[in-house]
Computed example of a mutant assay.
Amino acid sequence: MTKQDRAVRTRRALIRSAAEQFEARGYDRASLAEISAGAGVSSGALHFHFANKAAVADAVEQAAARALRRVALAGRGGDGSALQRLVDVTHRVARLLRADVVVRAGLRLNAEATTGRAPDLRGEWRACVHGLLDEAEREGELAAGVRPHRTGAVVLAATTGIEVLARDDQGWLARPSLTDLWHLLLPCVAAPHLAGVLDPAGREPERRAQEAGAARRQTAAAPLALR
């Protein structure tokens, strides 16, 4: 491993350790000593990469922003129904939050305006939601009388509320929470021709692969006489 590779690995370890500390203890109570210890490096190594705690927090927020933007861009640039892509992107963000402590901590730090330098992640999420709803309106996917701005406010309130509640109970980020939300919202906002077409549980590749695998196992387990 080259010196540059080691430096990249150390920086990533410090960002993850910092995210774990910020999530568990909050920005004020997290210490640089705990962050360096969690990354398995010395305090000197930490200060080689980051001048102070604010710089570490900023790096966590920036890493979270990159991950969230990748998910948002995938939804904005995908194919098919804009409403379905909105459903899909909410599920993908929830899955990312479940899996990645850096994203969870970065979003929380950003909401609390800890550093003041990172981008407005909630503002970017708002733009993603409103962009997909505007597209849905242009494509005739919204029911009569449904306005993107008002629908977007409901989606933003619900998804932000789920993220905040999940800080104490990650069960809120499980697929059923968002599926239930979309079961309620889609009949109210989607045009009649989309009834029964949109999937409130999302069309994530991981889920489709799991369902296909389950179907294959069920077929393989069936008695030969039934095949």
Rank of each mutant, 00 (worst) to 15 (best):
E141Q: 10
A7G: 01
H47Y: 15
H193L: 01
A65R: 03
L185F: 06
A136I: 01
E34P: 00
V60C: 09
R117Q: 12
A118S: 11
A144T: 10
H149I: 13
V87H: 12
L73I: 09
A57T: 06
P176K: 05
Q84Y: 00
A65Y: 06
I15S: 05
V155E: 07
R207M: 14
L86I: 09
R175D: 15
H193Y: 11
L142P: 01
L178K: 07
R6W: 11
R217L: 12
A143H: 03
G78C: 04
A127M: 08
G75H: 01
A54K: 11
A220N: 04
F22R: 06
A99Y: 06
R117Y: 06
G196T: 09
V155H: 02
R16F: 10
D5W: 11
A113E: 14
A74Y: 11
I162T: 14
L83Q: 05
G171S: 09
V197N: 02
E20C: 06
H49C: 03
A63W: 00
Q62T: 14
A65K: 03
L194N: 01
T160Q: 04
A39I: 08
A99N: 12
A18N: 09
A111G: 14
A13M: 13
P176W: 13
H130W: 05
A190K: 05
L181M: 11
T90G: 10
A13G: 07
A158E: 09
E112R: 10
H183K: 12
G116R: 10
L181D: 05
H183S: 08
D168S: 05
H91L: 08
G44K: 08
V8Q: 14
N110M: 06
S42K: 07
P148G: 09
R69C: 12
L156A: 10
A67S: 13
A37Q: 13
V89H: 13
G38M: 00
A214F: 10
D199W: 04
G196E: 07
G80R: 11
V154R: 03
E211G: 01
G202Q: 01
R12S: 14
M1F: 05
L121A: 01
L226W: 07
S177I: 04
R126W: 12
A195F: 07
F50C: 07
L194E: 12
L14T: 13
A191W: 03
A37R: 13
A136C: 02
D58M: 08
S81H: 08
V101T: 14
A166E: 07
E20Y: 10
L156E: 15
G38F: 03
T10G: 06
T90Q: 12
V89A: 02
G171L: 06
G75V: 00
K53V: 06
T219L: 12
D100T: 03
R66A: 15
A54D: 14
R9K: 15
A64V: 01
E61P: 02
P223T: 06
A13D: 15
V102H: 03
L142E: 05
A221C: 02
A19C: 04
R12Q: 15
A51D: 15
V129M: 10
L83F: 00
V8E: 15
V146K: 00
D180S: 14
T115C: 02
K3H: 12
V197D: 09
A19T: 09
A190V: 00
A59P: 05
T114Y: 04
K53F: 03
A209D: 12
S31T: 15
L226I: 02
L68F: 01
A54H: 13
L107I: 01
E141N: 03
R104G: 03
T159P: 04
A63M: 07
